[in-house]
């Protein structure tokens, strides 16, 4: 009995953590290259979610095609938002970039409200997603295992790209020292576009599993994943790709522990506890659990 509870806990942490890891990885890719905390990242997920909704409701396309197009939508919004909104600020201050990403986020939210509907829409989910699987005596929907598997595959592919391809090595170099990388012939625009494309791709994958879990899409749905991403990134380390993955799992762990241990009267304050932990982390350990090699400007 006890072993079963433990195993259920482990599966919950791993499946939630996988999703969170992908979310925070999408944020860190952009942050690493252009030091931008991208507030519009949540809306990339929303865009993908709506594409899944439209294709699922209004077409008879097979699921793999729907998913692929949903992910491509995330890639497209990542790529174009950078091109239109962020590129003109490259040479400006970071604060201007930050404020812009905030404005882009608001614009996209209002566009969804205006163009689609302020109310949430039910997203069709393939039946096998919700198929209950019995594993070591624990019953869990298949999607929980699928997200773990998807994350393993995605992370492996990303690791291979970052470690062995010229593009990946150049991106790692550019995130440590952007100017020097450019002096070595690494094109700035390509690096930043690549970061936003990977970020959008991860947002697209997240959208599939996020909307499957909530069963719906709505204009403001990007808010929660964005906040989760922030927490995970802060815990793991803003300058480290492996750190952000670790942060996702640690966040899932803390959140599950809080859910189990907090008295029910305090459960509604869970997010406040989470963010208080984030603030404590930022104050005490601004570099996160794993620090990258970027030298953060910090005065103490």
């Amino acid at each position: 009995m006890n072993a079963e509870i433990l195993f259920e806990f482990v599966i919950n942490v791993l499946s939630m953590g996988s999703l969170y890891a992908l979310i925070s990885l999408g944020l860190v890719f952009v942050f690493g290259i252009c030091q931008l905390v991208n507030y519009a990242y949540g809306e990339y997920i929303t865009v993908s979610g709506y594409v899944l909704y439209f294709l699922g409701v209004f077409t008879n396309l097979p699921w793999p095609v729907v998913f692929l197009l949903g992910i491509l939508a995330g890639v497209a919004i990542g790529f174009f938002s950078e091109l239109v909104a962020f590129r003109p600020f490259r040479e400006r201050s970071l604060d201007a970039l930050l404020v812009t990403s905030f404005a882009v986020s608001i614009i996209l939210q209002r566009l969804f409200q205006l163009g689609i509907s302020p109310r949430s829409k039910a997203v069709p989910v393939p039946a096998f997603f919700n198929l209950n699987i019995q594993l070591f005596g624990v019953i869990t929907p298949l999607r929980n295992l699928l997200i773990i598997g998807t994350t393993i595959v995605l992370l492996t592919v990303l690791v291979l790209i970052m470690k062995y391809t010229t593009l990946g090595i150049a991106m790692r170099g550019a995130s440590e020292n952007f100017v020097t990388a450019r002096l070595m012939g690494v094109p700035a625009n390509l690096m930043i576009s690549a970061a936003f494309i990977i970020s959008g791709l991860l947002a697209g994958v997240v959208a599939i599993f996020w909307s499957a879990r909530t069963g719906s899409v709505e204009p403001m749905m990007g808010g929660t994943p964005l906040l989760i991403g922030f927490i995970a990134v802060v815990i793991g380390g803003m300058h480290s790709l492996p750190g952000s993955v670790l942060g996702g799992y640690v966040y899932a762990f803390i959140s599950n522990v809080l859910s189990l241990t907090l008295p029910s009267s305090l459960l509604s304050f869970r997010d406040a506890f989470m963010f208080a932990i984030v603030i404590a982390f930022l104050v005490l350990k601004p570099e996160g659990l794993l620090r990258g090699n970027y030298q953060e400007e910090r005065v103490g």
């Binding site: 090595i169 790692r172 170099g173 440590e176 020292n177 100017v179 020097t180 990388a181 450019r182 002096l183 070595m184 012939g185 690494v186 094109p187 700035a188 990258g292 090699n293």
Partner: peptide, 28 residues
Amino acid sequence: KPEQLHKMGMALVPEGREIFPSLTVEEN
């Protein structure tokens, strides 16, 4: 842009070396 000039055949070894610290010699 720096990257264009590099492509044309310029190379600057910057002051303070500015190597990429977490990248291996090979990757640098």
